[in-house]
Design a protein around this nucleic acid. Structure first.
Length: 124
RNA sequence: GAAGGCGGACAUGUAGUCGCUGCCUGAGGCAGACGUGCCGAAGGGAGAGGAAAGUCCGGGCUCCUCGAGGAAGGAUGAUCGCUAACGGCGACCGAGGGCGACCUUAGGGAAAGUGCCACAGAAAACAAACCGCCAUGACCUCGGUUAUGGUAAGGGUGAAACGGCGGGGUAAGAGCCCACCGGUGGGUUGGUGACAACACACGCUAGGUAAACCCCAUCCGGAGCAAGAUCGAACAAAAGUUGCUGCCUUCUCGGCAGCCAGGCAUCCUCGCCUGUUCCUUUGGGUAAUGAUCGCUCGAGCUUUCAGGCAACUGAAAGCCUAGAUGAAUGACUACACUGCUGCAUCCAACGGAUGCUGCACGACAAAACCCGGCUUAUCGUCCACACUUCAAUC
RNA sequence: CGGGGCGUAGCGCAGCCUGGUAGCGCGUCUGCUUCGGGAGCAGAAGGCCGGAGGUUCAAAUCCUCUCGUCCCGA
C-alpha cells in the first residue's frame, strides 16, 4: 500500500487514529503540550506522515456542540497537518473549547503545532 | 372588531471554492489455480429530525432446551372498537370544571376480611348523649337545684356527625305522617354495551380511605444487534474428572434399569436433559470493543378511489429515500430572508411603517438493528374551521 | 443497551417504609464567663423538603411525569 503523504488537504483514513489501542499508546507514552483550548499529546511513529486523533469528552457539551468542535478541529488540522511528519498526535479539547470561535481555535492549533515541531527537532 | 377554542403543515434559501462517508461507472496497476480477486486516478449521484432526545411502554428480529401445573412478582382497570401489540389511539358513557366553543379524568370491588381517620369535639362507627328541650317526683329562700325517664329539633367541633328542606303533628320531639329532591330494590323501553329515560314499591338499613394491606378480572418465559453467524489472533502449560451398582455382551465400544450429582437463570412439584476429547479450576497470552455479515425493501413513502362518525382498513398506480463504527453533513465567501439592539424620518393613544449600521451555531437539538406510540425541549412562519362569547352595523 | 442511588437550613445528614409536630451535628448571630482570645454555658435566627400534576379532609412522605447529579454491569 503506497501512501501519498503530500496529498495537500485530504483527511482520509490514513491520517486518523482509528483504534482504541493507538489512543492508549499515545496517551500513556507521549509528551504533552497544552494551549488555551486544547491539549496535544504526541509520540513518534514508524509511518512517514503524521496521524491525528480527536478526543472531545462529555464535559464540553451535548452531542451537537461536541460534533461542532470536532468538525472545526478537523477542518483546521487538514490544512496544517503537513507541518509534522512521523508522529501520532492526540488532540484533546478542554472544557472551554465550545465557547471558542473558529479563528481563536485556529490560532491555538498553529501555535501548538509550532511548539510540537520545536520540541521534536531539539533533541535531534 | 376584540377575546378565546380546536386541528394541521414547515423547520432559512441560492450560488461558488476546499474537504468527509457509503453507492455506481471506472483510465490504469498487481496477483493469478485463467472461474476471478485486490488496489485505484477521475467522474456521476446520495447523505440527520419533528422531536433523531428522554428511554416511559409495546412489537418485529436473534439466541437461550420459551416442557406442564401451582405459588410468588410486576403491570393494567367504565364500555365498544382499531391495531402486529400496547399502559397507545378513536368513538361513546359517568364524574368534575367553564357563560360557551370545549377541556380534565389510574373511572372495578368498602354488606369477604384487616388497618387508619391527627387536632378539635360529648361522641369518629354494632352508635352514644356535653350544653340543651320536655314530663314526673323530691327539696327549698318560688326561682332554682337534684333524681328518673323521653327526645335528637337547636348550639358548638371538625374534612366528615347515621338522608336534605318545607309543612303537619307532639308534653318536647322524631320518616311518626305528607309534598319535592336524594337513596335502595326489582321492572319496562331504547342502546352491541357502559348507561340513560319512565313509572312502581320501600320511610331509608349501609361514613370516608383500596395512587393503605387486600379481593376480583385480564396480560406477562428470559436476555438483548456488545443479540447472533463466519474467519482469524490461537498457541502451549499444570491439576482434576471419564459418577456408583446391577444386567446384556468373550473384551473394548455400546445399550437398559436403579441410585447419585448438575441443569431447565425467582421458588416448589412432576416431567425432561446431561454425566462428555468435552468440562471445571489455576496460570499465561492477545489485534485487548479484531475483520466481514447482521445493516437497511420496510407493519415503507406519495397520490387517487372505496368502506367506516373516527382511529383505521382494502384496492390500484408510481417511487427507492443515510448506513457511520474514536463514529461521516463541515469551513469560508457573496446575495436574499428572518429576529434583536441602536439611530433617523413619517403617521402619531399603546404603537406602526420605511431607511441605515451592528449582532446572530439564526430555536430546540444530531441517526447507531428497525418500527408503532407516549413524554419533554423549541426561535418563529403559514393555513383551515358553516367553532364559541361579547360589541357595533344592516 | 441494561440496572441502581441521591436532591430536605450555609455544609454534612435524619425523618419517607407505617401520611397529621420538619429535626440532629458543625457553622452564623446575641448574651454570660475571661485582662483579651479559644474552650464552655444560655438563647435566637435561618426551610414554601429539586420542579409540575394527581389521590386524600390533609403529602417532605403515596402515585405519575420531568430536571439535575452520581455510580455499577455487558
Amino acid at each position: 500500500m503506497k501512501i501519498t503523504p503530500n496529498r495537500t488537504f485530504g483527511w482520509g483514513k490514513a491520517v486518523r487514529l482509528r483504534k482504541h489501542a493507538q489512543y492508549c499508546r499515545v496517551q500513556s507514552k507521549g509528551r504533552r503540550v497544552g494551549g488555551k483550548f486544547l491539549l496535544f499529546i504526541f509520540t513518534p511513529s514508524s509511518l512517514v506522515n503524521a496521524r491525528f486523533g480527536l478526543t472531545v469528552s462529555k464535559r464540553v457539551g451535548n452531542a451537537v456542540t461536541r460534533n461542532k468542535v470536532k468538525r472545526r478541529l478537523r477542518e483546521i488540522l487538514r490544512h496544517h497537518k503537513n507541518i509534522l511528519s512521523g508522529l501520532d498526535v492526540v488532540v484533546i479539547a478542554k472544557n472551554n473549547a465550545a465557547s471558542a470561535s473558529f479563528v481563536s481555535l485556529k490560532q491555538d492549533v498553529t501555535e501548538l503545532l509550532e511548539r510540537v515541531l520545536r520540541s521534536c527537532s531539539c533533541p535531534h
